[in-house]
C-alpha cells in the first residue's frame, strides 16, 4: 500500500567485526525503515544495526556490471 524507498540494512553481531549487509526493506520513512529492519532481520542478537537509503549509496563501479579484473 505504501510507496517508499528501498533501505539497505547493515548489522554486526560483535563490536570487533565489520558491519555487513544483511538485506533491505521498503519503507516510507526512516522510522518505518528502522522498525521493519529490526523486526525482519532479527535472527541474531545484533550489537549494531543501521539502515541506509539506497538512493544515498554512490556506486563506484558501474551498476550491475562486473569490472574487467573481476570482483
Amino acid at each position: 500500500m505504501t510507496f517508499g524507498q528501498v533501505y539497505e540494512v547493515f548489522a554486526r553481531k560483535t563490536h570487533d567485526e565489520p558491519l555487513r549487509h544483511v538485506g533491505s526493506v521498503n519503507a516510507t520513512d526512516d522510522d518505518l525503515a528502522k522498525a521493519y529492519a529490526w523486526t525482519l532481520y532479527d535472527e541474531e542478537s545484533w550489537v549494531e544495526m543501521c539502515v541506509v537509503p539506497r538512493s544515498a549509496v554512490i556506486p563506484i563501479t558501474q551498476h550491475g556490471s562486473v569490472p574487467v579484473w573481476g570482483n
Binding site: 519503507a27 516510507t28 522510522d31 518505518l32 525503515a33 528502522k34 522498525a35
Partner: peptide, 16 residues
C-alpha cells in the same frame, strides 16, 4: 523503541 518507530512511521504514512 521499535514499537514507537513503527507507530510513528505508519501514522505519518496514513496521514498522507
Amino acid at each position: 523503541r521499535y514499537h514507537i518507530h513503527h507507530g510513528r512511521g505508519w501514522f505519518r504514512a496514513l496521514a498522507r
